[in-house]
């Protein structure tokens, strides 16, 4: 149980951190470049810790890098939301906002979990994620309540991501839903945006059934360790 949780949390952080690293050098302002890199770095740090814990728990001599670089896409358990392509800045912000709001709620609970190792990592990570959630919410409001164009783009970004949010509340996370809904509604109201219509959610990530995007992401991410299996970097 703790092992599955560590894999899921580690994979979410790894894949989303990877997506954010694609922004590097290409953001709308230098301050945003810095912020996205900063969040990406936090998430890669969390991935190291959670995947390290998962690898130790399975007791097969693997480490965090082995889990990150030597598993195929059907073994990854990240949520589908995390692997969505960056799109424009509004879609990246929508993805970050919906994910970080959820991750913050989950990590707050896990920081008091019975499993002390999970609790320790969650306690460290929640400080970072609180910043991520607040950064993303701030930009949802700026874009939603900015210009006509940014408003439209924010709607499109939320619309792209919305069908993947149901998956976040699977696997023992159902209890987070009410608080998450309230939080999302509040920010969207501030931004002058309506919550997207409920849709039949698309799920599968937690069981290794991913979108078509993950395979490409892993091909790029894993290429060096795959090409040079004996090398240590």
């Amino acid at each position: 149980m703790a092992h599955d949780l560590a894999v899921r949390l580690g994979d979410d952080a790894l894949i989303l951190g990877h997506r954010l690293s694609e922004w590097c050098g290409h953001a709308p302002t230098l301050e945003l470049d810095l912020a996205l890199t900063n969040i990406g770095l936090d998430l890669i740090g969390q991935a190291q810790l959670f995947l390290g814990l998962a690898a130790a728990a399975e007791g097969e001599g693997r480490d965090a890098d082995a889990l990150a670089y030597r598993r195929t896409e059907d073994a990854f358990q990240n949520c589908l939301l995390a692997e969505q392509p960056n799109g424009d800045f509004a879609r990246t912000i929508a993805r970050q906002f919906l994910f970080s709001a959820w991750q913050e709620l989950l990590l707050r609970r896990l920081a008091d979990a019975a499993d002390q190792e999970i609790a320790a990592i969650a306690g460290k990570a929640v400080k970072e994620v609180t910043y991520h959630a607040s950064f993303a919410a701030g930009w949802v409001v700026r874009l939603g309540d900015g210009t006509a164009e940014s408003h439209q783009r924010m709607i499109a970004g939320l619309d792209w991501c919305w069908r993947f949010t149901g998956e976040l509340f699977e696997d023992g996370c159902a209890a987070l839903r009410t608080e998450w809904d309230a939080r999302v509604d509040k920010v969207l109201a501030q931004a002058g945006l309506d919550a997207p219509e409920p849709v039949r959610g698309i799920t599968g990530g937690r069981r290794g059934r991913h979108s078509e995007h993950l395979g490409h992401l892993l091909a790029q991410m894993q290429y060096l360790p795959r090409a040079y299996p004996d090398a240590v970097w």
Binding site: L14, H18, S21, E22, C24, G25, L30, D33, L34, T37, N38, G40, L41, I44, G45, A47, Q48, L51, A64, D65, A68, Y69, Q220, M221, Y223, L224, P225, Y228, A231, W233
Partner: peptide
Amino acid sequence: MLPEGNWLTRAPSLRRKAILLAKIQDECG
């Protein structure tokens, strides 16, 4: 930031990826 950023998505270990992210973040700063 661009020549190094070119390898961020292909950094061969989590440690190297984190180091490179931190470095590029510093350059922006």
